[in-house]
Every structure is written in structure tokens, then in C-alpha cells.
Amino acid sequence: MQVPAKFEYERADSVPHAIELLERYGPDARIVAGGHSLIPMMKLRLAQPEALIDINGLAELGRIAVEGDELAIGALVRHAELLDSTTATNLFPIFRDAERVIADPIVRNRGTVGGSLCQGDPSEDLSAVFSALRATAVIQGPGGTRTVPLREFHRGPYETAVAENELLIQLRVPIAPGTGSAYEKVERRVGDWPVAATGAVITVRDGVIAQAGIGLTAVGAEHFCAPEAEEFLRGKAPGEETFAEAARIAAEHCEPHADQRGPADFKRHLAGELTKRALTRANLNVAGSATDPNVAGSATDPNVAGSATEGRI
């Protein structure tokens, strides 16, 4: 029987209360929300916090809303809630693509957006998604809130910018007209970590790519992104050859490691291929472009924004 070691348990009734508890218990306290990374680690003694601070009661951290020109996603939003949020998935189909393949539906009922990011696993999907989206993390501590670009959030494997007495409270995603997004993942089976996965976000203005975001996970890309490939795309017209070259640059940027999920060259190949596919699909769901007869796929593709997924669980 796997059971965690003993710990003190505290329930936070507000964000300031959670921070006060973090300060009281010090570095050996951990925040718990969904618990689907932390509790298994505690069973295996990979984590042995002296205190758990439960933030599941903080409803104010569970909201998804458009605020000005940003989409705000609370840290306590469950994966299943993000998948179900048409506000989020209509603006950014990348959320639907990614959330459908994160863990499994029952784990998604419990696991949270903030927890996934704070776990800081180098194979985590949402880290690549929010990196591609150039999101900002809002972190609250004893002195108030501060913001950190998602691309500076991860300091290394399992290390983040969140200090011991701070709490990640929200992610903010910039909304720009003419933006399309998609996520592509190869996994061995439902619920597994990716062998490799790529997220692509492009903003097209006047027929050229004004900004591109490429997120990569499980392939050793620093900060979960591919800046050289993004730079290559800027100012170019979207198209097959351009995407193929960006994918090649992104694959080169990766430093995958061989493990039970496959050899390094296979993962590098996947990184390139998935980048190409994600860019192609992102381009298809750029607002207004899906009706372009010159674009392959078209709006009848069930994977493209806005169709055929209502009612799924």
C-alpha cells in the first residue's frame, strides 16, 4: 500500500491566507490543488512536505474570463474546465487540442492549470502551450502581485519562478486579431507523457505572419519554445515551404534525450514533423482564413476551430 508520510494539513480560505500559511510553515510546505502530481510523488517519498496547504476552496482562482485584450485563466481552473470553456477554446483552439490529450478524462477533472505549470515537468503539455501563446504568469506573495513572462517562468526541470512564499494565481494570454493556434502530440497511450509535442500560434496581418509562437515539450527545448524558428517566420507569408523550414529550424533547436519513449533522433524528427503540422493547422484556424479555397483542409475539418466537439465529455 502506498501512503504518503505524515504531514500537517491546512485549508486556505483566501489567497492572502494561503501566503500566510506558506510563510508560517516555511520551505517544507507545499501548495496542493488537484494533487495528481504531488500526491503520487508523496507516496513514493519523491516529495515529503511537512505541510500541505489546500487551495481547492479558493473559487476566485477558478475563473476563465476575457479582460480587455487578454484571456485570464485562474490557476485553479481544472483541465476539464479549460477544455469545456468555449471562451478559451474558440479564441485559442490550441487549448482544446492540448487538453484533449493531457492525462485522461478523470485526471483532467481534478488536475489544475496552475498545478501543471508549477510542477515544472520538462514533458508537461501546458508549459509548451502557454509558452507558444506568450502568456504571462501572475504570482502573488506577501508584498502583492508580480508578473513573469511564461518564457521566464521555468528555471529548469521542476523549478519555477514561484518563490517559497508565493502562489501562482493566474495566467494571462494576449488576444490578437488574426491569430490561429494548434497543438500536436504523439503519446504512447492515453494518459502518458508525450514522446514529443508542439504547439503553434501565428498571428497573420496583411497576408504575412506578424508574430509566431512555437512551443515544444519533452524534447529539451529551453523555456519550451523555439525562438529561431519564430524569428524565421516573422514577416513571411504563411505557406507549406515556410512552415517546413521553420519546422526544420525548430527541430535543430531541440536537445532531446533518449529514454523509454524513444531515441533522441526519433524525438527530434517528431519535433520537426509536429511543428509543421501544428503550424499548418494553426494557419487554417486563423480567423477568416478557413474559407480560403486555396487552403487545404477547410472548415469542415473536425479538428479545426469551432466545429463538431460540442457535447463531448
Binding site: 496542493v32 495528481h36 500526491i39 503520487p40 500541505l52 489546500d54 478524462p105 478523470i106 477533472n109 481534478r110
Partner: peptide, 27 residues
């Protein structure tokens, strides 16, 4: 399995299926 993989421990918490090997009773 005790690792939130197999799902045999699934119960509903407030009507939502969860894997009860990965939820604390206090929660």
C-alpha cells in the same frame, strides 16, 4: 494501481468522477 493510472478506485466527488487513490479524505 495506487498511481492514478488504472481508475478502478473511481468515485464521484460532487458528481464528478475522480480517482480516489489520489484524493485525500480531508479534501
Amino acid at each position: 494501481c495506487d498511481t492514478s493510472n488504472c481508475g478502478v478506485c473511481t468515485v464521484q466527488l460532487d458528481g464528478v468522477p475522480v480517482k480516489s487513490c489520489t484524493v485525500l479524505a480531508v479534501m
